[in-house]
């Protein structure tokens, strides 16, 4: 009697997690296993083949697409980290009404639907859009040529990622005590020394983590490149969508998803390495 009651109690948590876990099995585990399987199959004979991967890794256009995706993502990571870091430093070390306003203004964009942001940005930067019209007011013929070019994609990505990077870095900058900065200043440390010896060592982890997140969300980007990107070269997210929706080549689509997963796992590796290193810098 008592034993069966104990058993029932032990089972209860498993019953509670079962529905959610089944959903994960159905919508993550099963699709991913199937994708990996399909990616190694020929589309007509279903025999084992590595041709689907070969296609993406040898075809000139596809190689160019992979390179382009990495270029846009890495440029986005570097620029949003640099600008986010500068903005976070500014907010941390200038405590006044204006810097507080900047913090408040960083939060809101996170809640703006992505498509609304892309649409609004396009209206401003398209040729003949707001920027062109403002230039014309000053008598200058100006076309930003931002749409269908890497610079447009990167600027849009910065819109999405600077606030995120700033808030994440600001959190770690806030943990630096004013006292330690002041005492370093008292013994004559210059601004660069402060940055190198106090600020960077205590924030570098967060910098890498923010970078990993930004990289991951941009390697697999779809909406921005679909609307703002060119037809050649294309970001991998768009290539994948076309492969799946227009060419209906599921084996190649599966191979490309696996390639995307692998590229994304690069940032997971960075994340894990950074978290494992225990304050070696200090």
């Amino acid at each position: 009697m008592n034993e069966s009651r104990g058993l029932r109690k032990a089972i209860i948590p498993y019953i509670y997690v079962t529905p959610a876990f089944l959903l994960i099995l159905l919508l993550i585990a099963y699709p991913i296993v199937t994708s990996i399987q399909l990616s190694f199959q020929d589309s007509t004979t279903s025999h084992f083949t590595i041709a689907n991967y070969q296609y993406f890794l040898t075809n000139k256009i596809q190689l160019f697409n992979i390179g382009y995706t990495l270029f846009v993502s890495i440029a986005t990571v570097l620029l949003s980290l640099i600008l986010g870091f500068i903005l976070a430093l500014y907010i941390r070390f200038n405590q006044n009404k204006i810097s507080k306003a900047v913090v408040a203004l960083t939060v809101l964009p996170q809640f703006i639907p992505g498509l609304v942001a892309v649409y609004s940005f396009m209206m401003v930067v398209r040729n003949g859009g707001v920027l062109s019209r403002i230039a014309l007011k000053f008598g200058i013929q100006y076309n930003p040529n931002m749409l269908y070019a890497a610079k447009g994609l990167i600027s849009m990505n910065l819109w999405f990622n600077i606030p995120f990077a700033t808030l994440l870095l600001l959190a770690s900058l806030s943990s630096i005590k004013d006292a330690s900065i002041e005492s370093a200043r008292d013994i004559g440390a210059k601004k660069m020394t402060l940055l190198k010896d106090i600020i960077l060592p205590s924030t570098y982890k967060q910098i890498f983590i923010a970078g990993a997140f930004v990289f991951m969300s941009n390697v697999g980007a779809f909406t921005t490149p679909f609307l703002m990107g060119a037809n050649n070269p294309q970001m991998l997210g768009v290539v994948l969508y076309r492969e799946f929706n227009e060419n209906m080549n599921y084996n190649q689509a599966a191979a490309l998803s696996v390639i995307l997963f692998l590229l994304c796992s690069l940032s997971a590796v960075v994340y894990i390495i950074v978290n494992m290193r225990k304050e070696k810098w200090r």
Binding site: I24, L26, L27, I28, Y30, P31, I32, T34, S35, L38, M216, V219, G220, A221, F222, G237, L240, Y241, F244, Y250, A253, A254, L256, S257, V258, L260, F261, L263, C264, A268
Partner: peptide
């Protein structure tokens, strides 16, 4: 929390096949 660890578009295509 796993669903957030994958590129969304890759995961959606995989789900689409299923």
């Amino acid at each position: 929390l796993l669903s957030n660890a994958f590129p969304k578009i890759g995961l959606y295509t995989a789900i689409g096949i299923i």
